[in-house]
Amino acid sequence: MGEAAQNKDYEERLRRAGVRITRPRQVILRILSETEDHPDAMEIFNRATEVDPSISLSTVYRTMKLLEEMGAIHRHAFEGGRSRFEQAGGHHDHLIDIDTGDVIEFHSRKIEALQDEIARSLGYEIVHHRLELYGRKRRRR
């Protein structure tokens, strides 16, 4: 989904929930639809106040909470850091660089198949899972 379509989807979900789409919320929704990283609330707030200095941190938190409750975004509480947000979408896993805090998305069919195989062998079906790997870049020799 393109940025403009994603932004309209956020707005439509909020309207259906009876939430007014104020100028500050429009700015926050646009930032979310344009982002490709995993910003925390403070990063979203900083980006938003560059566009509109009147936006409050509490507006950012309330908007993120509403979108999370609707399933439009996902919140990740990666070990050792603040909660980060990303657009809801296709399944992927995360590698977190413990030195920089960078979050790298990846998908591995091998890992997915192995998880299914393990669950099946134990008599289970996977309903939901989250995989987070923590590491640091190897030093070249």
Rank of each mutant, 00 (worst) to 15 (best):
M1L: 15
M1H: 13
G2C: 13
G2N: 15
A4Q: 15
A4K: 15
Q6W: 15
Q6Y: 15
Q6T: 15
Q6S: 14
N7T: 14
K8S: 15
D9W: 14
Y10D: 14
Y10F: 15
E12G: 07
E12R: 08
A17K: 01
A17M: 00
A17V: 00
G18M: 06
R20P: 08
I21V: 11
T22A: 13
T22P: 02
T22I: 08
R23I: 06
P24T: 02
R25L: 05
Q26D: 08
V27Q: 07
V27R: 06
V27T: 13
I28A: 05
I28K: 05
I31L: 06
L32T: 01
E34Q: 14
T35D: 09
E36T: 13
E36Q: 08
D37S: 05
D40H: 01
A41L: 01
I44N: 02
F45W: 10
R47I: 00
R47K: 04
R47L: 04
T49S: 07
T49Q: 08
E50P: 00
V51L: 11
V51N: 11
D52P: 00
D52E: 10
P53T: 03
P53D: 08
S54V: 08
I55C: 07
T59S: 14
T59W: 04
Y61R: 13
T63I: 06
M64W: 07
L66M: 12
L67I: 08
L67W: 01
E69G: 10
M70I: 03
G71K: 07
A72C: 08
A72M: 11
I73C: 01
H74L: 14
H74P: 01
H76G: 03
A77G: 12
A77S: 14
G81D: 05
R84K: 10
R84N: 05
Q87W: 01
G89R: 06
H92F: 03
D93C: 07
H94S: 01
L95V: 01
D97L: 01
T100S: 10
G101F: 02
I104G: 04
E105D: 11
E105W: 02
F106H: 03
H107K: 13
H107N: 05
H107I: 07
R109Y: 09
K110T: 12
E112H: 11
A113H: 13
A113P: 02
Q115P: 02
Q115F: 12
D116L: 09
E117N: 06
I118D: 12
I118K: 09
A119W: 04
A119Y: 00
A119C: 04
S121A: 12
S121T: 06
L122V: 08
G123I: 00
E125P: 03
H128C: 12
H128E: 15
H129T: 04
H129P: 03
L133E: 02
G135E: 09
R136S: 07
R138G: 09
R138L: 12
R139M: 09
R139E: 08
R141M: 12
R141E: 12
R141G: 07
